[in-house]
Amino acid sequence: MSISTEKVETLAHLARLSFTAEEKENMREDLEKILAMCEALKQVDTEGVEPLIYMTETHNELRQDDVIQEISHEQALKNAPKSDSDFFRVPKVIDGQ
């Protein structure tokens, strides 16, 4: 299966990654190899086999609606690249960019 450079660019945009032309080409070749491997997996007969979504058999892992404040306001902001005494600060977000 072949992957176009445009496809790599779309995927890079969705993941907010930027590549040089050389990286883009490496990425394109790697993706093709990965997909080829997946093609091989398709040869396994999965007729009647439920898709495996979870690694465990558990269900209804539930909690009651109780409030527990685990961290302080200061701890919450501590690891932010940029913050003030109240808020996380991020570069201005403009739609479409």
Partner: peptide, 8 residues
């Protein structure tokens, strides 16, 4: 002026 402030 420069930053967007975020409250979670």
């Amino acid at each position: 002026l420069y930053d967007t402030l975020v409250d979670y």
